[in-house]
Design a protein around this nucleic acid. Sequence first.
RNA 1: GCCCGGGUGGCGGAACUGGCAGACGCAUCGGACUUAAAAUCCGAAGCUCCGCGAGGGGCGUGCGGGUUCGAUCCCCGCCCCGGGCACCA
Length: 850
Amino acid sequence: MAEAIYDPKLIEARCQQWWEENGTNRIDLAAADNPYYVLMMFPYPSAEGLHVGNVFAFTGADIQARYRRLKGHQVFEPIGFDAFGIHSENFAMKVNRHPSELIPSNVANFTRQLKMMGFMFDWERTIDTTTPEYYKWTQWVFLQLYKAGLVYRDIKEVNFCPKCGTVISDEMVIDGKCERHPDTEVERRRMPCWFFAITKFAGRLLDNLDWLDWSDRTKLAQRNWIGRSTGAEVVFTVQGRSQKIPVFTTRPDTLFGATYLVLAPDHALVDEITLPQLRAAVDEYRGAIAARAEAEAVKGAAQEKTGVFTGATAINPATGQAVPVFIGDYVLSGYGTGAIMAVPGGDHRDFAFAKKYRLPIVATVDPDMGAAAAEDFSGVDNVNELLATEEGKARLRTMVLEGAACYSGPGAVINSSAGKLSINGLGIEEAKERVCALLEGMDLGRRQETYRLRDWGISRQRYWGPPLPIIYDEEGNPHPVPEDQLPVLLPPLDDYRPKGDGRGPLATAEDWVRTTLPDGRPGRRETDVMDNFLDSAWYYLRYVSTSDPDRPYDPALIERWLPVDMYIGGNEHAVLHLLYTRFICMGLHQAGALRMGERPEMRDLAEPFRHFRAHGLLIKEGSKMSKSKGNVVNPDEYVEDHGADTLRMYLMFLGPYLQGGDFRDSDLQGVRRFLNRIFLWYFDNPQPEVPEAELPKPVRVKLHQTIKKVAEDIEALSYNTAIAALMELHNELKSAEACSRSAKEAVALMLAPFAPHLAEECWRNGLGHSTSVFEGRYPAFDPALTVLDEIEVAVQVNGKIRSRLVVPREAPKEELERLALADASVQAVLKGAAPKRVVVVPGRLVNVIA
RNA sequence: GCCCGGGUGGCGGAACUGGCAGACGCAUCGGACUUAAAAUCCGAAGCUCCGCGAGGGGCGUGCGGGUUCGAUCCCCGCCCCGGGCACCA
């Protein structure tokens, strides 16, 4: 035999060609009886090409797919390109090209790189969101939601990035700046926009999370974003007039302490209730607020609270007393009812405001000083000191009772009675119940849940996206484009740059804008395009029917393949993409346009992803990869030098996949050497081959332990430890005097998800199989062979290791104790004295307490 | 400010449910092979102190306390790094 050399280039090229010719990665979706759908977040095809971070993410998903296949599933692992949107458009502008000519070459380059990495994609089912064949159905999705009453047009205050020239979502505003332009303040503009009513599903989006097997940190991010508060709506009536001011509070128990109201400056009732003599002051204040919002960050550090009196008073429904009504900047118009009842005795913001404007402060809770925590108090400087002593606690309590401090912690209700009515003495939770019941009885309030989540504005005043399928009649009323007229094609536009006038570039395409309504009347097209997040909010449905011109997806295939079994992606999409995708799924269900297959734990949830795992972030030698630092790793050179298998396996070995890790060039060597040794073990191995039963027992045990561990680790996405286990196993196997065919087959099968080319080579050319390793089955382990007969037990004296014993695995406690006490090094410490105590943990250790 | 992660050798990282810390690798050092180098193979190694040596002692999972026979793991109080939210009533 010629000298065997591991030549990854040769092996990988040959292997990829063989897979291609044999259709190894192609799948007959209709025939699958044991389907498993692995999805990875599809990339935006940038001009720079595939980022090694993409390779990291995709390899982790590819391992799941290949492993499930070895476990006997038919696995669907598709890929596509998310090529619409501001990313692509901004880049095209930068290089002075048209996005429509840039995207195809970017896609071609990505395709080359993805094929190079050996992912198990079925290349006959890909998506490019910018093709009419795809966005026709994106528009169709819009129409389904429209029909279901989940779409509306409204003029609202929205985020507008002057640099992007378009409206952007709340999620894209970071500290008041645009996510893409961190040096640019986002403006608040009132503009007509199309909205998806995601808030209609807020409760479901939140509650369903309990039933989803997703990464905890992703669920937590969604919970925080949706932000449910439970409390009550309480109606205050303007004194001497008919207007009612509903407020939302999470603390209805403190209603008796509500000594004033605050409305958001742009609350709808402000004009009506403001007294004529105060109108000038109110208008001036509102002007100042608006000016400040433009000048400063929209969201920022909590500033000093300001406000102004409207002159109106309103009746507290509990006390019957009139309280003044203010407007103030610390009340947000978009949350709750845009108005609050201020309880300065129990809310630190109200307290600060009341102090500043000398408003009455009434304590409604007598602090339980045993349970109170420092953060429950405000208005006091040295809370921690005071809490340290009994006198201090007493002083704190007195301050609260006198209204000199604010308290939001547990305690008993006080100062809360009017006439025959009293809730004094109750605990906070009971008091909430009582007040709610009371308000409901008077029809002046009710229990209420409020969400932080806001509706999804989808209008973009941009060019590079799917046109909104809407036509306006001459009165300006919108009409949906009939489904049979889809797609509304994006017209070619040489000058696609935003004009900065708040209108989309499509407004300049007059021939395209002017059109006809379904009833024959003249009409004008909507000139905004849809948010790029809509493209990616349903792509996983299209994958099953990528070439179907007549419908977005085949219901039978949807029934068979969905929901997705395993979705893998970055946690940076925890609230944007994942929440929108869930919403679209629910919306399509509500519209009757989608019916997914039943999964025992997923019944009726209308959720797209059964399992989701957020992978970690890949960094480079201790710091984030970024273009500005110039440390972005391009996979090409690494594949050129070491092969795709080495790069794949190294990426999975460098750290825990779910937490991320550090890419270091030098460390690649270790994996390269390992694969080299593996290759030689198959192709240049002097070990005689014997039946497995004749292998030394420790070697057999190691083999079966590893088969068990690698499967467990892959299922837990703990790839780095799975690879370490494979390395350990191989170290042991190759130094044994003989080897078995079963061991060689097992190693190839376990290696296959990580290094598919090499595993295929070893399987077919090393072991002589005629079919692919991926037609094989993941090996089974014998539980009896996963434990050794003899084990080592540590012997400690006072918790310090003094000796070790080799004993039968099942050695009884008494025996262990006897052996430990007889041990010379134990004797030496005890010096003949009897031990005080002996702790024996069978199978682990003996601890002698002297 | 609040909420999540995380802090372990020179480096990346292991460690079941509270039970032998440092698996597996990288880099390093020593040896073999080689005219030489690379590659490969074999071996050493947490830090530190004592000893010529075999060997032995002490210290060690961000810091300070606690619980326990025993703590990287649990509890209390801090520090640092990363991420998310940030006037949400």
